[in-house]
Nucleic acid binder design. Structure first.
Length: 567
RNA sequence: CGGGGCGUAGCGCAGUCUGGUUAGCGCACCUGCCUUGGGAGCAGGGGGCCGGAGGUUCGAAUCCUCUCGCCCCGACCA
């Protein structure tokens, strides 16, 4: 295609609203424009990238036997009411009424509608397995859209759903997806990890996320370089650092005005890991729960929530009412209110500690975790960098990541309420076993930029670049330059290589800058001087390497280079 | 939803504290000349409801009230 006829509005300056690198470069490179918070226009170049990614996704999905279909984005409320999500989901769902007053919503995801279809069309065990997918628009009224295209209110998603007769079938569909996802992300040129994730509100049993390392991400994962253990920090486990127990007598100590672990530790001359940090929480049903972690640990909200359900921190006055003492001096020993549920970090299984005495200005030393209080031990602490891997003992690394895909085993969470059942061999109705699997193609593009760029701009992997090659005739007033460019352009076309011909009548510097910024992987540079010797230059965007080749060979060379990098 | 920041030309910004000619600069854009290997140069030119509404004042981009929008941190993220 010819640059002069394409809309590629590049920007010399960084737009003020952009912060993430991928966001800045997409706006500057003429890929996207913002319409409103979380709503973006895809310009021609970006659409080409998305199509490349989607095409890779389609190939790999089809390869595992998945079938593409397309579902409405506007849904009647009833289907969502049947699974309970109409009420379970809050403001995040766009809702509206049609002209007759019927409640409708915009699709955030398609479990309900896919299951609705399965309920009608899958009748027998002979009909399964099935995998259905679509690359379709999703709408979510995000509380906080951010980082350009990484978190938007309208986005496309590849979502697939598997339908199986039993858990064994589900496992197979799940593994097929995991394998397909590995191929997809690898082909898109990404560095990524498959990590254990929290099934959360999706319901179900097992879940994994595919994570691309990037500072622009919103999640953290723990990874073990030795054994390959990888998990979202929301459920990552590790060996808490162990310290030799410090011997101390069981006694009350006066600690006037010393409330935080740091203050008391300092005051008593003991390290933080000798303390028990006590936090009063209020569960959803209003019941107080005392959560204990070691002094050097932090309570992990998500992990705690999995143990006691949704909760909040108790207010100061609630602490006084319930425990009879102000925050800072509370602890698991000598509690006035004996009925309170106590949960504790697994690191508090044994050893001697200091904690609040439940008496103003006093702490107790020498608390023996095995004798002085009872608690349910759970993993409720935040794990930290360099803690030892539970599986192999090597130090764990914490890495910020972008979630680019996820896979869930759903089980019968949707098939039961929507009555998606099949007749088994015995002639009995059985609920279909489902899985649900997502990929965010725009996030794949953003992650690719985050992982592949330099000071001059984007460096696309060839497989998802809008064009694999750009032709730069440096002076379009020079006839020989233009003729050579046209010759190479035609030759590339004949080989099925899409080239972006920069036919603009502008100074060379602008062509170089724009081509670097937009990230086209290869440049064929045609200048008068080299032309005198019948040569043109091929420049590799990533390595900045330049090679002079006879003009007649340029098209062949590019075809060869892009072909081997595309696989 | 809580905390913070910002709305002035297409983009990036100054001017606002301390009210006062015709609201300014760089880039981009248009015309002409010149130039053609890393966002050139010269000359000329177009473009603004200073986010919006109300108020204070002889006078408001500037002060006050309300409101809308965008960004960042947090909560949320099915």
């Amino acid at each position: 295609m010819r640059y002069s006829r394409l809309l590629i509005p590049t920007l010399k300056e960084t737009p003020s609203e952009a912060e993430a690198i991928s966001h800045i470069l997409m706006v500057r490179g003429g890929y996207i424009r913002q319409l409103a918070a979380g709503l973006y226009i895809s310009l021609p170049l970006f659409l080409r990238v998305m199509e490349k990614i989607n095409s890779i996704i389609r190939q790999e999905m089809n390869r595992i036997g998945a079938q593409e279909l397309s579902m409405p984005v506007l849904h009647p409320a009833e289907v969502w009411q049947k699974t309970g999500r109409w009420d379970a989901i809050g403001d995040e769902m766009f809702r509206l009424k049609d002209r007759t007053g019927r409640d409708m919503c915009l699709a955030m995801t398609h479990e309900e509608i896919m299951t609705w279809l399965a309920a009608r069309e899958i009748r027998s065990y002979r009909d399964m397995p099935q995998i259905w997918y679509q690359i379709q628009t999703k709408l979510r009224d995000e509380a906080r859209p951010k980082s350009g295209i990484l978190r938007t209110r309208e986005f496309t998603m590849k979502d697939s759903y598997s339908f199986d007769v039993d858990a064994e079938g589900l496992n197979k569909s799940y593994d097929l997806h995991a394998a397909a996802y590995h191929r997809i992300f690898a082909r898109c040129g990404l560095t990524f990890y498959q990590v254990e994730s929290d099934p959360g509100m999706m319901g179900g049993l097992t879940a994994h996320e595919f994570m691309a390392p990037s500072d622009a991400g919103e999640d953290d994962i723990a990874i073990c370089g030795r054994c390959g253990y990888a998990a979202n920090v929301e459920l990552a486990v590790s060996h808490p650092p162990e310290y030799p127990s410090i011997d101390m007598p069981y006694e009350e100590v006066h600690t006037p005005e010393k409330k935080t672990v740091g203050e008391v530790a300092n005051f008593l001359g003991l390290p933080p890991h000798c303390f028990i940090k006590s936090l009063l929480l209020i569960a959803k049903d209003g019941a107080p729960v005392l959560a204990l972690v070691r002094g050097d640990e932090e309570l992990h909200e998500k992990k705690t929530q999995r143990v006691i359900g949704p909760y909040r921190a108790a207010r100061k006055d609630e602490i006084v009412n319930i425990l009879g003492v102000e925050a800072g001096f509370i602890g698991p020993v000598n509690m006035i209110n004996q009925g309170i549920r106590i949960i504790a970090s697994t690191s508090l299984e044994k050893g001697l500690y200091v904690s609040g005495a439940n008496k103003k200005d006093y702490h107790i030393k020498g608390i023996n975790a095995e004798v002085h209080f009872q608690a349910d031990r759970h993993d409720i602490r935040v794990i930290k960098e360099n803690e030892k891997c539970l599986k192999c003992g090597a130090p764990l690394k914490i890495q910020r990541v972008i979630e680019i895909g996820n896979i869930f085993k759903l089980g019968t969470k949707y098939s039961v309420p929507l009555n998606a059942v099949y007749l088994n061999k015995e002639g009995i109705d059985v609920p279909i076993i489902m899985g649900s699997y997502g990929i965010g193609p725009a996030r794949v593009a953003a992650a690719a930029i985050e992982q592949n760029h330099d000071a001059n701009g984007i460096i696309w992997p060839v497989s998802i670049a809008p064009f694999p090659v750009a032709i730069l005739p440096l002076n379009v007033s020079d006839e020989e330059t233009v003729n050579t460019a046209e010759m190479i352009y035609t030759a590339l076309q004949a080989k099925g290589v899409e080239a972006l011909m920069d036919d603009r009548d502008i100074r060379p510097g602008i062509k170089f800058k724009d081509t670097d910024l937009t990230g086209i992987p290869f440049q064929i540079i045609i200048g008068a001087k080299n032309l005198k010797e019948g040569l043109v230059e091929i420049k590799n965007r990533a390595t900045k390497e330049t090679t002079k080749v006879p003009m007649a060979n340029a098209a062949d060379d590019i075809a060869r280079l892009t072909a081997c990098l595309k696989a």
